[in-house]
Design a binder for these strands. Sequence first.
DNA 1: CGGAATCCCGCTTGATACTG
DNA 2: CAGTATCAAGCGGGATTCCG
Lengths: 110, 110
Amino acid sequence: MEKNMSIQGCPFFTVQKLLAGKWALLIMYFLGEETLRFNELQRKLDNLTHATLAKQLKALELSGLIIRKEYAQIPPKVEYSLSELGQKLQPSLNSLFEWGGEYLKYTSGK
Amino acid sequence: MEKNMSIQGCPFFTVQKLLAGKWALLIMYFLGEETLRFNELQRKLDNLTHATLAKQLKALELSGLIIRKEYAQIPPKVEYSLSELGQKLQPSLNSLFEWGGEYLKYTSGK
DNA sequence: CGGAATCCCGCTTGATACTG
DNA sequence: CAGTATCAAGCGGGATTCCG
């Protein structure tokens, strides 16, 4: 099993798995700007259903990238924010964001 | 169709699609270090079959992130390298790489 | 309001085999 | 050596429905 070590232990492999979710980048971005409740987040991602968002959030929570804070009250209220690890990702996110913008410029031209 | 504009035009959405391939990050990373032939690349990704690598490369080429240079000779020789756009992605890649390393440290501890 | 369980569908991955 | 074609299998996203 150590024949694959070179790749399994590779940071890129890790990143790939962590951010593989279709909405992971967007979620991390929005939460980077501010703490949000479930429904607030959903409103920002207007293509997304309840269920899908819930799954993505759970995955990110289990990975330790976001924090889920639940208030014991009626009606229920849950807030999501970036964990310490998640916050450290922000510079990379910003960098990707800028590059994405450049890509769009390039390709819209042709 | 313009009700989704806000998200379709988002750089993160673009990045997500571009780098969605399971091996995209690794490939971009290796090609960032040096121009490589098909088989050289495959050897570095020792889990990967011909077919899969070929598909990933084709996708990245069509996206305009890598350049495919073919030499008309026997036996065939094809070299892959980063396009201009691909090179601009490198800083982001490095940033992600470092973060991935930190993540591994954090999580291996617990 | 927030979340979980189910089912369905499509896409990507990966194995295998075949061309030039 | 490089690439394509085909096909099977697995996974993830999305819609729906039901709980607290």
